[in-house]
């Protein structure tokens, strides 16, 4: 029983990051109808921001979040201008298909550049509190992962406030709903597209820095994170921040439980099986209305 509970706790803690990793991708897809399959590579870059700040100046990875977010915001804006802007004039279907192609290309380029720049080895951040845990009964909670989860939740809360309590956020939701109707109201949707992509990238950067708190970073981690994000989005339903977060927790727990019950080889399989079941039974997502 204790072991089960322990696995559930580990699952929840990693699941918070799955949720955060997915929200950025979901936001970009919802507003732009662009499926950026290089989202995982942006998470990888966020991780390297944290690794480098730690290696060079011993900057705490939780503080590095403050750098990774803005840096990836700017990087995302540049990538959008360079690669995705011209998609805006096409129909939604054409946009999605082409964005996947562009995304794959971008993912390969970013991975290769990362290998060139930092080598293919894993790199880790080792703050002083790395191994520390809090014990609740017989269950052990790693403090760094708990902190990452709490921060992920805070960031999502901030995103929710941004989307519902600001002018740009309201425009973002309007554009996600119907970009033509949004244009009629006078929303400059070109700028909203740019903002959404940059914001989605910033969320990937923050997620990457938080991943580095407890996991090693290597150039190859991107695809795994993109896959997780896609599973989480399908589970949670589009355009629902807290649905996405809960779906992330759900996936985390399901993976960790099945890893324990069925053997570690089945960890990843469970997520993909859930992905297929939800797509065929309830394609709108488990948590959508």
């Amino acid at each position: 029983m204790t072991i089960l509970l322990q696995n559930a706790v580990f699952g929840l803690l990693i699941g918070g990051l799955y949720g955060l990793g997915a929200v950025g991708l979901s936001l970009v897809f919802g507003v732009l109808a662009v499926l950026n399959v290089a989202h995982g590579e942006l998470i990888m870059l966020g991780g390297y921001v944290s690794v480098w700040l730690f290696t060079l100046w011993r900057v705490d990875p939780f503080v590095s979040v403050l750098a990774a977010g803005p840096l990836l915001f700017l990087g995302g804006a540049a990538l959008f201008r360079l690669l995705f802007t011209r998609l805006a004039s096409y129909s939604e279907e054409v946009r999605i298909k082409n964005s996947i192609l562009i995304g794959f290309g971008l993912a390969l380029v970013l991975q290769t550049l990362a290998i060139l720049a930092w080598g293919a080895d894993e790199r880790a951040v080792t703050p002083s509190y790395a191994g520390r845990v809090a014990a609740i009964g017989n269950v052990v909670v790693p403090l760094s992962r708990l902190g990452a989860m709490a921060l992920a939740f805070l960031v999502l809360g901030g995103l929710h406030l941004f989307l519902t309590r600001t002018r740009a956020g309201t425009a973002l939701r309007a554009t996600a709903d119907d970009d033509q109707a949004a244009t009629l109201v006078g929303i400059p949707i070109g700028r909203i597209y740019l903002t959404a992509f940059a914001l989605g990238s910033a969320l990937a950067g923050v997620a990457g820095a938080l991943v580095s708190v407890s996991d090693a970073i290597s150039p190859a981690i991107g695809l795994g994170w993109t896959l997780k994000a896609l599973i989480v989005i399908v589970l949670g339903g589009m355009g629902n921040i807290f649905g996405t977060f809960v779906a992330g927790l759900f996936l985390g727990v399901a993976e960790s439980m099945s890893g324990f019950l069925l053997g570690n080889a089945y960890r990843e399989v469970v997520g993909l099986v859930m992905f297929l079941i939800v797509l065929s039974v309830r394609p709108r997502g488990l948590f959508s209305r």
Binding site: T170, A171, R173, A174, D177, D178, A182, V185, G186, I187
Partner: peptide, 16 residues
Amino acid sequence: LSKLSALDNVLVARLY
């Protein structure tokens, strides 16, 4: 904007 609330529909028009 069909998915947005009545208030948000008016709000977005007011904001822009």
